[in-house]
Design a protein around this nucleic acid. Structure first.
Lengths: 243, 243
DNA sequence: AAATCTCGTTGATCCAGATCAAACGCGGCC
DNA sequence: GGCCGCGTTTGATCTGGATCAACGAGATTT
């Protein structure tokens, strides 16, 4: 049974793969080179666009890894579970991010939409054979994997060695940087995930998240117009305490 | 000033890149396909073999990322530092592992030899241009990056949500699996790193590592012929408590 | 509008693992 | 030999964040 709805095949011919660097200024790096029209066409020919509602699963850790996805709109969380229900959110994904890439038979993590999301879905086998013919695409994937690996190492530093306050400050700055990459210029960060998701991302509890945000607010480093909207009023101070 | 000694150029024509899957049974997977003789020759032509003594740095987090390395003998730790000296070991590397791959100008982490180690060193620019001509090699790198990413996510789960005992048990099992991949058949795991390195890998302190190993020994799950040799006498029990 | 539910906040208490402190063991060196 | 230095172990105490508990604010249902 499919958990998502198929929106439309062969959608608008816009760029379907967006490398993070694409929007961060490093456009001239070889790994960021976009595909040409013909290559884009071939990529689009094997893909399907899907739309997923909020809180809906995109795939599960144990599912056979038959598809690879590229997020084009919305926000997604990826996470792993222990048998007793403990959860670790390993990442929040935004437009331009890739998910589902693995060399095993099953996905290495579960993915769930935070808000209504649009994704490009590529059959894995067909994408892999396309990779044989489009080395530029493979280079792009390698670049994205390196990027993710670096982010994962930063997260290990955070989880292994930072205090609760440092984690929360780091998280707010990361979300701010991510928003900037998405074209959001001001310092108002919107958080599409709830407190539980943040807690499971930072290796803390909801209570600690709530208390720590409260402290930062009391010190005047942030403002909270609403629970999911945070204004970083003193970004420099946040950077100092982010470890 | 170079921190390592150059052992010999154009060393023995053995395989210089070994994908993890190469020794874990999945030899027929496309990403694990070895290069042919001619391709091996071209790879070897741009590389230098170096030898690094124990506790010696291979590169630092801030160094310009001019080279990529492949470990062929010994053991290496990679880690990140915070400004106040807190340290997170993000991985232990063994023969067949790759290090130094990044898309930034500087390395994302520091690397240091645990024991005398032999590495193949590839000038990054030349390797990148070689990648354009050897798509099989690029596929191999992508496979290794995916592998590492999955391992990083497991480690995030460990650091964010597991107890000290679960972390130590997971670590011992990981080292055992790694030893098996290296061809070590028995259940005697040798630990080339010291307690401080293990602590910084698991997000704990040396005291907690020592106490937890002591508990496991007292319960008869492990034996310690020496500080750096651990016998997993009841691997099943370790798996149960590893979370 | 009352009842229920979910999510976030706040307060009180607890505990796993950190920190502080001391001793041990072993290899290197005078 | 005896001394030193470093890594490891063991013991005592402390504390940051978890846990347990209660409540409030929206949203949804009845």
């Amino acid at each position: 049974m499919s958990r998502f709805t198929i929106a439309n095949r062969n959608p608008a011919p816009q760029r379907v793969l967006v490398h993070p660097c694409d929007t961060c200024g490093a456009r001239d790096h070889s790994a960021c080179a976009s595909l040409n029209d013909e290559e884009q066409r071939r990529l689009v020919s094997i893909m399907t666009t899907i739309e997923v509602g909020p809180q809906r699963a995109i795939f599960n850790e144990t599912d056979p890894a038959d598809h690879v996805f590229s997020l084009t709109a919305g926000a997604v969380k990826i996470f792993k579970l222990l048998s007793d229900g403990r959860r670790q959110v390993t990442g929040f994904l935004f437009p331009g991010d890739f998910l589902g890439l693995t060399h095993n038979e099953a996905y290495a993590y579960s993915a769930e939409a935070l808000t209504t999301s649009r994704l490009c879905r590529f059959p894995r086998r067909r994408l892999e054979s396309l990779l044989d013919e489009l080395p530029k695409l493979e280079r792009q994937l390698l670049g994205m994997a390196s990027h993710e690996l670096a982010a994962a190492q930063d997260q290990m530093m955070l989880l292994g060695r930072k205090s609760a306050r440092e984690r929360v400050a780091s998280f707010l700055l990361l979300m701010s940087a991510t928003a900037a990459r998405q074209g959001n210029t001001d310092d108002k960060v919107s958080l599409p995930m709830n407190r539980g998701d943040i807690a499971d991302y930072l290796g803390l509890t909801v209570e600690t998240i709530s208390r720590t945000l409260g402290q930062l607010k009391a010190k005047g480093l942030i403002q909270m117009p609403s629970e999911k909207q945070i204004l970083l009023t003193r970004k420099g101070a946040l950077e100092e305490i982010s470890g």
